[in-house]
Design a protein around this nucleic acid. Structure first.
Length: 262
DNA sequence: AAGCAGAGCAACCGCGACCCG
DNA sequence: ACGGGTCGCGGTTGCTCTGCT
């Protein structure tokens, strides 16, 4: 039962189903109706509430925006961590992932993934489904988030993160980087070019890269972002990471960029 | 100040699953 | 068993905002 945007007289237009952004009046109508009658059947909601919208549209608006318990805005590091972990397990099962993030909608999580994570991988010409990308998420991105959460909670990580998130996989080439998550990999790069080169080598499989370039790029990024300072100031870095993980993900950028030449 | 490009997000669309007569 | 109606999910689109030149 699709709607059809045919041109017509004013009265016809009045009766047409509306599309596009919801108005405040429509929001009020829908919210009032649902609060009185419950969610029920969405086609009925659409018809009986007086809204000229499809049931689908009403459902989407209610679930993603009007629902009282819906949370909007900054996705916390804990939530980011959970999203990364759950996505690694279930893939694009957004609604399933959303069930474990109270107040978050599948749409919001999907948008987060597409804008922050997938876009990042795309820019770096790295397949989000590739082993390498998953490793980066698992061994660099996620540990960083844990650091952030720990810092924010005064050293106690209270995030409900599945323990399978970052197993100690000794013997893999990624271990050294994973092992540095508590301190060194965030500091060394700013001061020692050799550390920068060695860190980069772990993610290039030991292939030589331009260490000077790596160091300079990292230093420039560090200077711009000032995130060494932020690491030492839990309050500040909490906001920093909450706003956008990617902005502090300069290191991954450097590493991935170098991989492109391989 | 104006134009442009990119990012972020709300909403739509298509399809498959489910329910019920 | 079948068919129509409805719902829910994942993919996609397009609008708005923001930052850069």
């Amino acid at each position: 039962m699709d709607f059809d945007a045919r041109a017509g007289s004013n009265s016809d237009v009045e009766m047409e189903l509306r599309k596009g952004p919801w108005t405040v009046e429509e929001d009020l109508l829908l919210a009032n109706y649902v609060s009185v009658h419950g969610e029920g059947r969405w086609d009925s909601v659409a018809k009986c509430s007086g809204l000229r919208r499809t049931g689908k549209s009403c459902r989407l608006r209610w679930l993603n925006y009007l629902r009282p318990d819906v949370r909007r805005g900054n996705i916390t590091p804990e939530e980011q961590l959970l999203i990364l972990e759950l996505h690694s397990r279930w893939g694009n099962r957004w609604s399933k992932i959303a069930q474990l993030l109270p107040g978050r909608t599948d749409n919001e999580i999907k948008n987060y993934w597409r804008t922050r994570v997938q876009k990042h991988a795309k820019q770096l010409r790295c397949d989000v489904n590739s082993k390498r990308f998953k490793d980066m998420v698992k061994y660099m991105w996620m540990p960083r988030l844990v650091e952030r959460i720990q810092a924010a909670s005064g050293g106690r990580c209270e995030a409900s993160v599945p323990q399978t998130a970052w197993p100690a996989e000794e013997g893999t080439r990624l271990v050294p980087v994973a092992d540095t998550t508590s301190k060194s990999n965030t500091v060394n790069l700013s001061s020692e070019s050799s550390d920068a080169a060695s860190a980069s080598n772990y993610f290039t499989g030991g292939v030589e890269v331009d260490a000077a370039w790596f160091r300079d790029t990292a230093a420039a990024e560090l200077s711009e972002e000032g995130w060494i300072e932020s690491l030492r100031s839990p309050g500040i870095c909490d906001n920093f990471w909450s706003q956008d993980l990617e902005q502090s993900g300069w290191e991954e950028c450097c590493l991935w960029n170098m991989e492109q030449g391989l």
